[in-house]
């Protein structure tokens, strides 16, 4: 299928600002899903609130645009409800790490087979440029005009510590790497998280004198290094990219289905269940 076959074209043009990185992430998601050869009816997108959440509406899958921060809680209900579905949660950094931080760590802890795609632009874009838990120390937003004195999360380390069994980080500059990571994350059995550093030239870039979208993407190119590279040893201040965690661990829904099987002496036929509806 062509990329456009995954779009709900009647709802375009989309609402993102010129130069926004979220469209690149959406493109990466489509290409990863296409490479996996998934049937559109097998895929459920569950988003929260914010610029990132609009991804759900634009794509031709079963889509839910839910409440700020709660995407993974809704997604857990969908996944446990119908285990054969591929459930993907596109989220923003404020959405996933501030208001939704509790749901993120618990989804990771359960190792439930949901894929979180976190578009990290270090700012609240939809509300006009306030600092988020991913705004680096001293950087500016409309609620920290003198530079924030908050310290930011490391999403990958947080997810790893909480028990996520697949964690990867990349940027919108590294689009091909991103497709592969999202592909592998969706394929992974267990909670998977891909952090994509995404540019917000309108607010984060402007408030912090980072230039236009292209300049910000060049910043991703120059400020990040591949996991395990020599450059990282020489420059530990650079941000590490790559698949940082990839482990096989018991997955929540599979464990629940095992419990049902043990109690009932039979395994629910998932495909049959799907067809009968």
């Amino acid at each position: 299928m062509a990329v456009k076959d995954y779009l709900r074209q009647r709802f375009f043009p989309q609402i993102w600002c010129a130069g926004c990185g979220h469209g690149i992430v959406m493109g990466g998601m489509i290409r990863a899903i296409e490479q996996l050869g998934l049937d559109k009816n097998e895929v459920v997108l569950v988003s929260g609130i914010g610029c990132s959440s609009r991804v759900a509406g634009y794509l031709d899958f079963h889509t839910m645009h839910t409440l700020h921060g709660r995407a993974l809680a809704f997604a857990s209900g969908v996944k446990l409800g119908r285990p054969h579905l591929k459930v993907i949660a596109p989220m923003g950094d404020g959405d996933a790490l501030a208001i939704g931080g509790n749901h993120l760590i618990h989804a990771a802890r359960r190792n439930i087979d949901v894929t979180a795609i976190i578009m990290n632009n270090s700012i609240y874009g939809m509300t006009g440029g306030q600092t988020s838990p991913l705004t680096p120390f001293t950087k500016r937003g409309t609620t920290a005009v003198f530079g924030t004195i908050d310290h930011c999360f490391d999403i990958a380390q947080l997810a790893k510590g909480a028990g996520a069994s697949f964690v990867a980080r990349t940027t919108t500059y590294h689009a091909k790497e991103m497709i592969k990571m999202i592909h592998d994350a969706i394929n992974h059995k267990g909670f998977s998280l891909v952090e994509v550093m995404s540019q917000c030239p309108t607010y984060y870039g402007r408030k912090n004198d980072l230039g236009a979208a292209v300049d910000m993407m060049k910043g991703f190119r120059d400020g990040t290094v591949r996991k395990g590279s020599k450059k990282l040893e020489e420059h530990p201040e650079f941000v590490e990219r790559g698949v940082l965690v990839n482990e096989a661990r018991p997955e929540y829904v599979s464990s629940y289905m095992d419990l049902i099987e043990k109690l009932r002496g039979e395994r629910e036929n998932l495909e049959q269940g799907a067809a009968s509806r």
């Binding site: 569950v46 809704f74 857990s76 209900g77 969908v78 409800g81 579905l85 749901h103 618990h106 509806r277």
Partner: peptide, 20 residues
Amino acid sequence: IQMEDEIASICAIIGASLTG
């Protein structure tokens, strides 16, 4: 499923209800 709080609980049942 025992969720992490009541917010997550009701969100999960909304998701499950939409799956039928």
